[in-house]
Design a protein around this nucleic acid. Structure first.
Lengths: 247, 247
DNA sequence: AATGGTTCTGGTCGTCAAGACTCTTACACG
DNA sequence: CGTGTAAGAGTCTTGACGACCAGAACCATT
């Protein structure tokens, strides 16, 4: 074992990099987990779809840079959620120079309306399934980044309060359940789901109000808001359809 | 919403950064999850303890850089595990320049012997608990990095085959159980643990051999090797001692 | 007003995983 | 040959979870 001699600090010693921050912005579009893509204006990959991103400034933290990119691209100031999930620095991932990018995933609620107000040639919301399966070509290594982001979302649904970021400040249990169903690609029984989140206090708090019944009719559902317990976990676990033991 | 105009490519446009890779190297030291610390030889923070790290080269990937650092610091070529878990770039985290570091966590098995062969003033294995609680002062923001790494280990124990990286190619169920107990700071019943990992095929494969009984005597335990199922998950879940609902 | 359709909401029931616990087996040591 | 120790096997209870059914509350249509 050698001692740590590697961090020499002659400024000529270290190779310069550009550091960028890319943000995978998720939202729910009629029951499908979707991400925001923007069309690139410049080379390289001009005209191609990509996830939003930009250079980090020396005066801001990585989190700040991600927040700034989010605001610049969507006008939204505070995302429901913004988490870092990976860094990408393969040689040649940017054809022009050494770029290391730090990837964030964000969750927004009302993105659909915002995107509808822009030129459809410049921004669109695409179901993750289409990106994962390669139906849409993305610039750089952005397809891999999106894939990793989706993977992270699936995990965090089970271990964090991520799901609440997809719904509004008040929500029905059906809406919340739909988030899990879309993220995990499963079907959950409504009655069992209700029991899981209402059995213990701290997950959802009844507001006493009711939402308007859907277009299809039906009993008007209760409105809830998120409790504090989400800070430390999730009320339900991902079903293991694979009979324990994998394969 | 604006279109993506942020990635201008005039080389004078983007602020230069140094990119480093830091590795939190975990190993088990008599039942305690521990990390490798090395003493810094140069400024800044000369003489202080830190986790190993160094500059990324433009010709290598981030993963390659992490592997290289691991080899340079420990002489070990292939770690049992090497995963990226975070990037850190707060302004001022390095007093001399703009540095963004990408953090990896590694798991090694026989590190104790390697460290014993070096000058104790240059490298040591420290239980994570001492670092988390701030008993050891670390350079840069390395304490935070180690804390995040520990958090990641705890999670990955439940959702990946991380635990098998701590044990040898063949192992007893007690050894494997000890990994979970140390990582989660819980006690697991030996009989129940055995049932969990042997109930379904694919987790552990009996080799037919038996290890020598411990110094304390007792029935000599069976030796197993890891099966393929670990690729996709873990055989046991972290006990929820908090009576569901957190708070 | 009655009927059928839809969704929410509460209840039941069987299955199975998870823990707690006990007992047997196989070694070392004196 | 007993005694101590840890591995390994068995039993039992609890409760979580999923599948399913039934009633309640609303809408739309007749």
């Amino acid at each position: 074992m050698t001692t740590n001699t590697s961090k020499g600090y002659d400024p000529a010693d270290y190779p310069p990099f550009a550091v960028t921050v890319d943000v995978v912005i998720f939202t729910m579009v009629d029951g499908a987990l979707s991400v925001l893509l923007v069309r690139r204006g410049q080379e390289p990959f001009a005209g191609m779809w990509a996830i939003p991103g930009g250079f980090k400034l020396p005066t801001e933290s990585l989190d700040d840079a991600a927040r700034r990119e989010l605001r610049e691209e969507t006008g939204v100031d505070a995302a429901s959620l913004l988490v870092q999930f990976g860094a990408y620095g393969d040689p040649g991932r940017d054809p022009r120079m050494n770029v290391v990018t730090v990837a964030y995933l964000a969750v927004l609620r009302d993105l659909e309306g915002i995107v509808a107000g822009t030129d459809a040639a410049d921004a669109q919301l695409v179901p993750v399934e289409r990106i994962v399966r390669g139906k849409v070509a993305l610039a750089f290594d952005h397809r891999r980044i999106v894939r990793d982001a989706v993977e992270r979302v699936r995990r965090d649904l089970e271990s964090t309060g991520l799901a609440t970021a997809f719904v509004g400040p008040t929500f029905t249990l059906s809406e919340l359940r739909a988030v899990y169903e879309a993220g995990w690609e499963v079907e959950l029984d409504g009655a069992n789901f209700r029991r899981a989140v209402t059995a213990a206090a701290g997950w959802v708090v009844a507001t006493g109000k009711r939402a308007a019944p859907g277009a299809e009719g039906g009993k008007p559902p209760e409105l809830f808001r998120a409790g504090r317990a989400w800070k430390h976990g999730a009320p339900i676990r991902r079903p293991r359809n694979t009979t324990r033991g994998g394969r």
